[in-house]
């Protein structure tokens, strides 16, 4: 077994105590939620915190609840399994329930949290490896080295955002609530991202994500998630597609959104999706034609690189297929699009 580097665990019982620990130890400290990303990364010596601050004993971080005015609040420590199974989430945000239900495998969804998923580190086949492996490679730009191996001679990290819930949350216009030394801040998830694989999130190391808020959706809301991966369980996405369609009482599309992930450092919104789908009834040939137009647009925008495993050309070719199928699934009130 790979050994974990030595560290100390702290288990604060309140948010304030947790924040105080983060302030005290600064860059030596790291938050652990479910640990399903952090622990492997520590074993690979990608992060080697001296202090690990566990959020497990702060009860208010866990659970799904009503945030008023139709908003849902999902505590950052809510497990992915609970998110996927929650009746309110399934009704109000089907794409999120589907995406959470497709993260990793059942054991990891029981341990893994929504907050940890939002804040998941980017992934790359040259990076998510053991110390020995990375040393044999001569390391890479993101950690311990100077070169990027994805783009030969590249000077910027293009490791891929690989969190399944992120694109779904973006289509849902979710908001993130952080607390830090400066107090509370609420930020739309769209504003979280940076286009840098080495650090793709605007989130300071002394901040905590406390909850994810979902705005209300109406009866015409439809959403679905599509995930390309080699096996039907465990694997990270080779491509993730979240779709949202809003229908009026006659079944005509009034708004739409499509966000892709696992291509580059940040999730990518497909341009003009709403425009291309607006006014189309969500069925039949007209809808299919519009969905194809969105798929083509997605294809033009998507330029996957050989950052994560899997043939980048194939991943690109799958973009329009998955966009179209996931839009169709949303229109039917179905999904996820998976294992096909």
């Amino acid at each position: 077994m790979l050994r974990l580097p030595k560290f100390e665990v702290r288990t604060p019982e309140s948010l304030d105590a947790a924040l105080a620990l983060l302030a005290e130890f600064g860059p030596d400290a790291r938050v652990i939620a479910g640990g399903t990303d952090l622990v492997p990364n520590m074993k690979h010596e990608l992060v080697t915190p001296r202090i690990v601050v566990s959020l497990a004993r702060i009860p208010e971080l866990r659970g799904v609840g009503d945030a008023g005015a139709g908003w849902l609040r999902l505590g950052a420590m809510t497990s992915l399994a609970d998110v996927a199974a929650d009746a309110r989430v399934r009704a109000q945000a089907p794409a999120l329930a589907q995406a959470a239900g497709l993260v990793a495998g059942p054991q990891l969804r029981t341990m893994g949290t929504l907050g940890g998923n939002v804040l998941l580190d980017t992934r790359c086949q040259w990076y998510n490896q053991t110390y020995f492996w990375r040393e044999a490679l001569g390391f890479c730009l993101k950690k311990d080295g100077t070169l990027c191996h994805v783009v030969e001679g590249g000077s910027k990290c293009v490791a891929a955002a690989s969190n399944d819930t992120a694109p779904a949350l973006m289509t849902l216009r979710a908001e993130l609530v952080f607390v830090g030394p400066q107090g509370r801040r609420v930020t739309p998830i769209d504003d979280l991202w940076l286009a840098d694989g080495a650090a793709n999130k605007k989130c300071a190391s002394d901040e905590l994500l406390v909850e994810v808020r979902l705005p209300p959706t109406g009866p015409g809301h439809r959403g679905a998630y599509g995930k390309l991966r080699e096996r039907a369980s465990i694997d990270f996405p080779l491509l993730g597609v979240a779709t949202r369609i809003e229908l009026d009482a006659r079944g005509t599309i009034t708004d739409a959104d499509v966000v892709l992930t696992a291509l580059q450092a940040r999730p990518v919104r497909v341009k003009r999706a709403a425009e291309l789908l607006l006014g189309v009834r969500a069925e039949g040939d007209a809808f299919l034609a519009a969905a194809r137009a969105v798929a083509d647009q997605a294809h033009r925008q998507a330029h996957p690189m050989p950052n994560i495993p899997g043939d980048a050309e194939w991943r690109r070719a799958m973009v329009p297929v998955y966009v179209r199928r996931t839009l169709e699934a949303a229109a039917r009130g179905a999904g996820p699009v998976h294992a096909v």
Binding site: Q125, W133, A136, R231, A232, S233, F236, P309
Partner: peptide, 17 residues
């Protein structure tokens, strides 16, 4: 270098596969 010396990257089938 081995392309992925782990049970995540070397894909043996799961029960659902």
């Amino acid at each position: 270098l081995h392309a992925g010396p782990s049970l995540l990257d070397y894909r043996i089938p799961t029960s659902v596969d």
